[in-house]
Amino acid sequence: DRHTIHIGDITIHLEGFSEEELKLAEELIKRGIHLEEVKRILEELYR
């Protein structure tokens, strides 16, 4: 499954994450956390 996060003019595609995980990812990215770090956090929390 493919999910999309929109932040301003930026569109990020993250596959294989639930709606809850994507909301967390979006919040972290909006707070300035680097995408690679966001992915690592999600994997630690949900895998």
Rank of each mutant, 00 (worst) to 15 (best):
L35D: 05
T11K: 10
F17Q: 02
T4N: 08
I33V: 12
I33Y: 10
G32M: 12
I7Y: 06
T11Q: 12
E20Q: 14
I7W: 05
Y46G: 15
I33D: 04
K39A: 07
Y46R: 15
L14S: 05
G16T: 10
E19M: 09
G8K: 07
E37K: 05
E44L: 03
S18F: 08
E15P: 14
Y46Q: 15
E37D: 12
H6Y: 00
L14F: 12
I33K: 06
V38F: 04
L45I: 15
E15R: 05
E27H: 12
I12V: 12
I10R: 06
H3W: 01
H13N: 08
L28D: 00
T11G: 06
E15M: 10
V38Y: 01
H3G: 12
E15D: 13
I7H: 09
E37H: 04
H3T: 12
K30F: 06
I10L: 06
E19A: 12
L42P: 00
H3E: 06
E21R: 07
D9Q: 10
E20A: 06
L45T: 03
L14E: 01
E15H: 12
R31S: 11
H13S: 14
F17P: 04
F17L: 09
I33N: 03
L28K: 01
A25S: 03
L14P: 02
R40L: 08
H13G: 08
D1C: 13
L22Y: 08
S18G: 14
D1V: 07
I29G: 02
L35W: 14
I10W: 08
K23Y: 06
E26Y: 12
H6T: 14
K23G: 06
G32F: 13
G16Y: 08
L42T: 00
E19N: 13
L42S: 00
R47V: 14
I10G: 07
K30V: 07
T11Y: 05
L45Q: 09
I12R: 03
K39W: 13
L22G: 05
K30I: 09
L22R: 08
L45G: 09
E19W: 11
R2L: 11
K23L: 08
H13L: 09
R40I: 05
L28I: 05
K23W: 10
E27N: 08
R31N: 11
I41T: 02
T11R: 07
H34V: 12
I33E: 03
K39H: 05
E36A: 10
G32Q: 03
R2E: 14
R31C: 13
I29Q: 02
L22C: 13
K30T: 13
G32V: 08
I29D: 00
I12M: 07
I12A: 06
I33H: 08
V38P: 00
R47D: 15
E26I: 11
R47T: 12
F17A: 08
G16R: 11
R2M: 15
L42Y: 00
E26V: 14
E20M: 10
R47P: 15
E19L: 13
I12C: 07
R2C: 14
I29L: 12
Y46W: 14
K30R: 14
K30A: 14
R47L: 15
E20L: 11
F17N: 05
H13W: 08
E26K: 10
T4M: 02
R2K: 15
E20S: 12
G8D: 07
G8Y: 01
I7G: 08
I33A: 05
I41A: 05
D1S: 07
I29V: 13
F17R: 05
R40T: 03
E27L: 06
L22W: 12
G16D: 07
H13Q: 12
I5P: 06
L42H: 00
H3Y: 01
L42I: 13
Y46C: 15
I5V: 07
I29E: 01
I33G: 02
T4Q: 13
I41L: 09
H3C: 04
G16F: 10
L28E: 01
E37M: 06
I12L: 08
E20R: 04
D1Y: 00
D9W: 01
I7N: 07
H34C: 08
I10Q: 11
L14Q: 02
I10A: 07
K39P: 00
I12E: 03
E15S: 11
D9K: 04
L14G: 04
I5G: 11
D9A: 12
E43Y: 02
E20G: 12
E20I: 09
L24H: 14
R40V: 04
Y46L: 15
K30N: 14
L28Q: 01
K39R: 11
H3F: 02
I33P: 02
F17M: 07
E36G: 07
A25P: 01
D1G: 12
V38W: 03
E27M: 09
H3I: 13
H6S: 10
I7E: 07
G16W: 12
R40M: 06
L24K: 06
L28T: 01
H34G: 14
H3A: 10
I7T: 06
A25C: 02
S18W: 13
T11M: 09
G32D: 03
I41D: 00
Y46K: 15
E20K: 10
A25E: 02
